[in-house]
Design a binder for these strands. Structure first.
Lengths: 212, 212
DNA sequence: TGACTGACAGATATTGATTTTTGTCATCCC
DNA sequence: GGGATGACAAAAATCAATATCTGTCAGTCA
């Protein structure tokens, strides 16, 4: 009415805040940009001044949400533990974060799964961030002699891929399986052995045969 | 007309054959049990004499389909190559089989993805078969000294889990990524190093911390 | 002047009436 | 009698009419 933006000017940040609230309240399928605008006390046209489309708004919300997963992991990366234990702690933290969200915010989580399926840029960037974090832990381990691999980044990507079942939302349905923790222990001990082994490879050590 | 079963008596096997034909022709979403019965020249009531529900029929078709993936791999398991190369060949064959089906039979493949999501028994049994095959290759490698792990079955399950991204249909969308082959090479060289390493673990070698 | 509005067209989602499908079973035929 | 049939009820899918939503833009107001 008198003041369309009930609390200061309308910024992308304020829109994201409101969008997240509405999303949490109504769920992704029931959230419209009119709802978001109403929560802010403005018309939906104003929202389009800051985000070119609903998809862009949704991507921005997801990006924020993903950052709240990767940011706390940064603390683990900078931790003082020896690299093998630190890598294990990092994986535990990642899995715990994913599972917590899968339970607490099932609907938003489903949105993210949808995003993943579309292999959208937002998710690619998130994965890049995570792989970088692993790479830094592995690089530390190479310096200290705990790990021996050719290329920290390649090894990091491989560790991330090999543990996909335990953190990729596409596998969320399996996270309640009784054997899931044991399965992770199995994969972890293989990975740990591979990274620790005297001359474990990180690339181009196979016969590299054509498939299909 | 004179003979309802146009070619001998009605058996589960003949029903499965017809069901698969119809499925391939119409796709899973457009296939009804009346369609299957019509293809056989019988009433749909007769189909229910052999399968308690449409779900049971669909599961049986899927089981057959999955067996056509695991059976040819048996040849690789019994092959003469040294275990490390044989394991690699087995993984290549599995990935090739999955990708071929993903391209050629996209709709049936989607059905299977749906099945996977429900974590149905049929898929569990299929995975068990595949893990057994890996375990036999690893056991061979333990005998010959090429591999050293505590428990072949546990290691096999870990290899299967660690390569999920490359054969699990939930990741089918990523199989056309340009970097997918390189990613597999990375994971493979870690796994090969882990299995080959002097005292690589297969279980219970971590700190086993509680998560969450 | 420039952020904001709100009416609008086209795209998308919802609804509920209608049709199809599933699964059962009394009956029929060889 | 053993196996097949087809009418039937309940459940599920379909479809078209209706309502809602997205994205645009000419116009308003400070």
């Amino acid at each position: 009415m008198s003041d369309a933006a009930s609390d200061g000017v309308l910024t992308p940040e304020r829109i994201l805040e409101a969008a997240e609230d509405v999303l949490r309240r109504f769920g992704p399928s029931k959230t419209t940009v009119v709802d978001v605008a109403r929560a802010l006390g403005v018309s939906h046209g104003s929202v389009y001044r800051h985000f070119p489309s609903k998809a862009a708004l949704r991507d921005a919300v997801t990006e924020r949400w993903l950052r709240r997963i990767s940011d706390p992991l940064e603390v683990v990366v900078r931790g003082k533990q020896a690299p093998p234990e630190r890598l294990r702690a990092w994986l535990d933290a990642l899995m715990a974060a994913k599972r917590r969200r899968c339970l607490d915010e099932a609907e938003l989580f489903a949105t993210y799964v949808g995003l993943t399926a579309d292999a959208r840029d937002v998710v690619k960037a998130h994965v890049d961030t995570l792989v970088d974090q692993i790479a830094r832990i592995i690089a530390d381990g190479m310096k200290s002699g705990a790990f021996s691999v050719k290329d920290a980044r390649v090894a990091a990507r491989s560790v991330f891929d090999a543990t996909a079942r335990f953190h990729n939302p596409a596998h969320a349905g399996e996270w309640s399986d009784p054997g899931i923790d044991a399965a992770f222990e199995g994969v972890w001990s293989l990975l740990r052995a591979a990274l620790t082994a005297p001359s474990s490879g990180s690339q181009t050590s196979g016969t590299r045969g054509r498939k299909g």
